[in-house]
Every structure is written in structure tokens, then in C-alpha cells.
């Protein structure tokens, strides 16, 4: 048994090394004084300064945040409503509709991108940040729907009945009982949608017009231009941001669990 654990642990650590080494290497070399090679030539913060002063990069970041914010907001409002509606009134064919709504999560990103490109060109909507936001909402909405629906399905329907029995109207029962219990799922969905939107390259690539450069588009063009320590610095920052997001979501989950340990 101990031997078994031993090589399991070894394999697992090997896995982690595989997952982390590339990211760690990027981060380390973002401090490299040399501009071209992977040879270590001393410590510098120069590339972070270059990055911070890169106006195009900052604009791209702003665009990304704007798109992520708006698309997440729309997707959350629509997705939560749809999840509640699907849970409450299982009309004929609601399973088929639900299945169809999850299609965007399954079909290849490239396909979704070109389909939207085609659509916008044919209905003559000029490509811009607006079209990007619309596209992002189209893949964020099913994401929110799936997460919130899963949580709704596990909620005890008797809790809402108990509220009704204690004098709550249907709306009060939803507002005072169901919604607070859905909060962890909604926050999780928002976080997920926001991250996916911030990270998305493929769909954005096809639906963004000139001037509508988001951060991933900018990173892509930088990579295409060639390897530079500035990308390393940017990468290190992005890794840090994703770590912070995870830490935050975990902290949120922990307080939630302390407050509503019933949860599942």
C-alpha cells in the first residue's frame, strides 16, 4: 500500500510539474535583462515598465473588461431567469429546448465564431465591440444557465412550500428563500462567465472589427510578431490575476459554507 501511494504521489507531482513548469518559466524570464534569448542575463523590472506604458495594451485591457462586464451582466440576468423558468414549468418539449440551449457549450469555438461573423456580415452589422459583446453573451448565457440550473435542481422544493405555508406570496417565497440559496451558484456563474469572456480568443477573433481589440487579440498579435519579454511580463500578470480570482472565489465559497452549510 505504501509503495502504491509512493508512485502515485510521484506521478502526481510529475503532473503538477508539467502543469506549472511552463508558467513558472515565463514568470521567471519576465525578469530577465536580456531581450532576445532564453539565457539569463540578470534581473530587471524593465519589461513590466514597458508593459505598463504600452497604451495599446491598456486599451485592449479596457475593452476586454468592458466586454466581459456587459456580457456577463446580460448573461446572468437572462440565464438565471431562464433557469428558474425551466425548473418551474416543465412544459412539453422543455427538455429539448434545454438541450438546444446548451449547444453553444459543445460546438467548436471556431464554428461559433464564423457563424456569428457570417451573420453580422449578412445582416450588415459592422463588427465592433458591440458584436463581440453579443457573441460573448451567446456563450456565457448557456454557461450561467447550466450552473444555476444544477443548483436549482438540488434545492429542496419544500423550502419554498414552507415559505408559502408561512404566508409568503410566490414572489416573496422566491425572493426570501430561493434567491438567497441560489446566491453561491450565481456568484460562481458570474465568476466563470467573466473569466471565460476575458480569456476568449477564438470567437472574439472572428467577431471583432478594427479598433475593437481585446486583450487576448492583442496577446495573439504580440505572439505572432515574435517572442518578447514583454509578453512574459504580461503572462505573469495574467497568471497572478487568475490566481487572485480563484482565491477570491474560494474565500467566498468558504464563507458561504459557513453561513449556509446545508447547501447540498
Amino acid at each position: 500500500m505504501t509503495k502504491r501511494r509512493g508512485w502515485l504521489l510521484g506521478l502526481s507531482l510529475g503532473n503538477l510539474l508539467f502543469l506549472y513548469l511552463p508558467i513558472a518559466v515565463l514568470a521567471v524570464f519576465s525578469f530577465n535583462a536580456s531581450s532576445m534569448t532564453a539565457q539569463w542575463q540578470g534581473m530587471t523590472l524593465h519589461w513590466y515598465r514597458v508593459m505598463a506604458e504600452d497604451a495599446a495594451l491598456l486599451t485592449a485591457l479596457q475593452n476586454s473588461l468592458l466586454v466581459a462586464l456587459v456580457s456577463t451582466a446580460i448573461a446572468t440576468v437572462l440565464g438565471v431567469s431562464a433557469a428558474v423558468s425551466l425548473e418551474r414549468s416543465p412544459f412539453r418539449g422543455h427538455r429539448a429546448i434545454e438541450g438546444a440551449l446548451l449547444l453553444p457549450l459543445v460546438i467548436p469555438e471556431v464554428m461559433m465564431g464564423v457563424a456569428l461573423l457570417l451573420f453580422f456580415v449578412i445582416v450588415k452589422v459592422p463588427l465592433s465591440l458591440v458584436t463581440v459583446t453579443i457573441a460573448h453573451t451567446a456563450f456565457n448565457l448557456p454557461l450561467v444557465l447550466v450552473i444555476v440550473r444544477a443548483r436549482l435542481r438540488r434545492l429542496d422544493p419544500r423550502l419554498e412550500e414552507a415559505a408559502r405555508d408561512l404566508g409568503a406570496t410566490p414572489w416573496q417565497a422566491f425572493r426570501r428563500v430561493t434567491l438567497p440559496l441560489l446566491k453561491p451558484a450565481i456568484v460562481g456563474a458570474v465568476l466563470m462567465a467573466f473569466t471565460v469572456s476575458l480569456d476568449d480568443f477564438v470567437v472574439t477573433f472572428f467577431t471583432a472589427g478594427p479598433g475593437a481589440t481585446t486583450l487576448p487579440l492583442k496577446v495573439y498579435s504580440m505572439i505572432k510578431t515574435g517572442v518578447s519579454p514583454e509578453i512574459n511580463a504580461l503572462s505573469a500578470v495574467l497568471v497572478l490575476i487568475s490566481m487572485a480570482l480563484i482565491a477570491w472565489s474560494l474565500m467566498f465559497q468558504r464563507t458561504q459554507r459557513r453561513m449556509y452549510p446545508f447547501g447540498h
Binding site: E161, A162, R164
Partner: peptide, 20 residues
């Protein structure tokens, strides 16, 4: 008469206490 307007209150089988 809907449940919220009836002069009865139910003690649920597994209590259905509001966890939040």
C-alpha cells in the same frame, strides 16, 4: 385559498428549515 392565506401551518416531514 392559496397556502399563504390559509389559517394552517405545516411542520414538514424533514422540517424544511431555511438553511440561510
Amino acid at each position: 385559498v392559496p397556502p399563504n392565506l390559509r389559517p394552517v401551518n405545516l411542520v414538514f416531514q424533514h422540517y424544511a428549515l431555511f438553511p440561510h
